[in-house]
């Protein structure tokens, strides 16, 4: 009976892998820095999913603690990254990652 099938850890790990791949492809093909940040968030979420599924699988709460720290670091990363984007946009009009080939302000 198909309703009795219970999703195992492997399913979650595969889902996390696919989500990580989507995020990685997004980082490679998109050129808007803000969308790049969103794709990085996708990859972080894929890793979080993997952490929690293995934490559940192994009965070890340490994986969920790691996710907690990933959340904190992701928040700090977004704050700093958006600050950089804002200060770049103050100096030049265009906003694609291709325009930012030099470190010169």
């Amino acid at each position: 009976m198909i309703a009795d099938v219970v999703p195992t850890t492997t399913w979650y790990l595969v889902l996390g892998a696919v989500l990580f791949g989507i995020g990685a492809v997004g980082v490679l093909v998109r050129r808007n820095p803000l969308v790049l940040f969103m794709c990085i968030e996708l990859m972080l979420n894929a890793v979080n999913l993997t952490f929690v599924s293995l934490s559940d699988r192994l009965g070890d709460i340490g994986g969920q603690t790691a996710v907690f720290f990933v959340l904190v670091v992701a928040a700090a990363e977004v704050v700093v990254g958006l600050g950089i984007v804002i200060s770049i946009l103050r100096r030049r009009a265009g906003l694609t990652a291709d325009d930012l080939t030099e470190l010169r302000g």
Binding site: Y12, L34, L71, A74, A75, V78
Partner: peptide, 30 residues
């Protein structure tokens, strides 16, 4: 998925911090 895997606290934090704060920050900057 977090709720399904019994990580209730992380599910709440996910909704509040990620969907609530980080995405709003993205939209705000946009």
């Amino acid at each position: 998925h977090f709720v399904a895997m019994e990580a209730h606290f992380l599910a709440a934090v996910q909704v509040i911090v990620y969907a609530g704060a980080i995405v709003v920050l993205f939209l705000f900057v946009l």
